Simulated assay, not measured.
Amino acid sequence: MLRFIDGHHDTLLELNDGSDAFFTGLPSAHLDFTRGKKAGFAAGFFAVFAPNPISDPDPGIVHTEAGYMKSLPPILSREYALAATTRSMARFFQLEELSKGTFKTIRTIADLKKAVDGDWMGGILHMEGAEALDNDLDLLYVFYKAGLRSIGPVWSRSNQFGEGVPYGYPSSPDTGPGLTPEGKELVRKCSELGIMVDLSHLNERGFWDVAAISDKPLVATHANVHRICPVSRNLTDPQIDKIGQSAGLIGITYSIDPNMVTPSAEGDPGASLEDIADHIDYVRNRIGVDHVALGSDFDGTMVPDAMKDVTGVPMLLSVLEQRGWKKSELEKLTYKNWIRVLEQTWKE
Rank of each mutant, 00 (worst) to 15 (best):
F33V: 03
L72H: 06
K37F: 00
T24M: 03
R78K: 12
K38T: 12
P59R: 08
F45W: 12
A50K: 07
Y80H: 06
Y68Q: 07
D20R: 15
S19G: 01
L12E: 04
F46V: 02
I61E: 14
L13F: 05
L31E: 01
P57M: 07
D32I: 06
P57L: 08
N16Y: 10
G44I: 04
G36Q: 03
F41E: 06
P73K: 07
T34C: 06
D58K: 15
G67W: 01
Y80V: 05
L13D: 11
E14D: 14
D58V: 12
D17A: 14
G36A: 06
F49L: 11
Y68S: 11
P51H: 14
K38G: 00
G25K: 00
K38R: 14
R35K: 12
V62G: 00
F41L: 15
H63P: 00
G44D: 05
G67L: 09
P57W: 06
I61K: 14
F46C: 11
E65Y: 12
G36S: 06
G36Y: 00
P57S: 10
L15T: 07
T24H: 07
I61N: 03
S71A: 13
F41C: 04
S71Y: 10
F22S: 04
A39R: 04
L76S: 01
D17M: 09
S71K: 08
D17Y: 04
G18W: 10
N16I: 12
G25Q: 03
D20Y: 13
D20I: 15
A21S: 13
D17G: 11
A39P: 02
P51Y: 11
G36P: 01
G18I: 09
E14W: 01
P59F: 02
A66P: 00
D20T: 13
A39T: 03
P57I: 10
F46L: 13
K38E: 15
F45Q: 07
F49Q: 11
D58S: 13
G60L: 14
P51F: 09
A21I: 01
G40C: 08
E79S: 13
L13H: 10
S28L: 08
S55M: 12
G60M: 11
I75W: 02
A29T: 04
P57H: 06
I54Y: 13
A42D: 05
V48P: 02
A50H: 04
A47C: 13
F23K: 10
A39F: 06
Y68K: 02
G60S: 13
I54D: 15
P27W: 08
P27H: 06
G18H: 08
A29R: 03
R35D: 01
P73M: 05
L82M: 10
G36M: 05
F45G: 07
L31Q: 07
H63Q: 14
E79V: 12
F45D: 06
L76W: 01
A29M: 01
F23T: 07
F41T: 01
G44R: 03
P74D: 11
L82S: 09
K37R: 15
I75F: 08
P51N: 13
A66Y: 11
L15Y: 06
T64M: 03
L72N: 08
R35Y: 04
N16K: 15
K38M: 12
I54V: 15
V62S: 12
P73A: 07
E79I: 11
Y68C: 04
R78N: 09
K38W: 00
F41R: 04
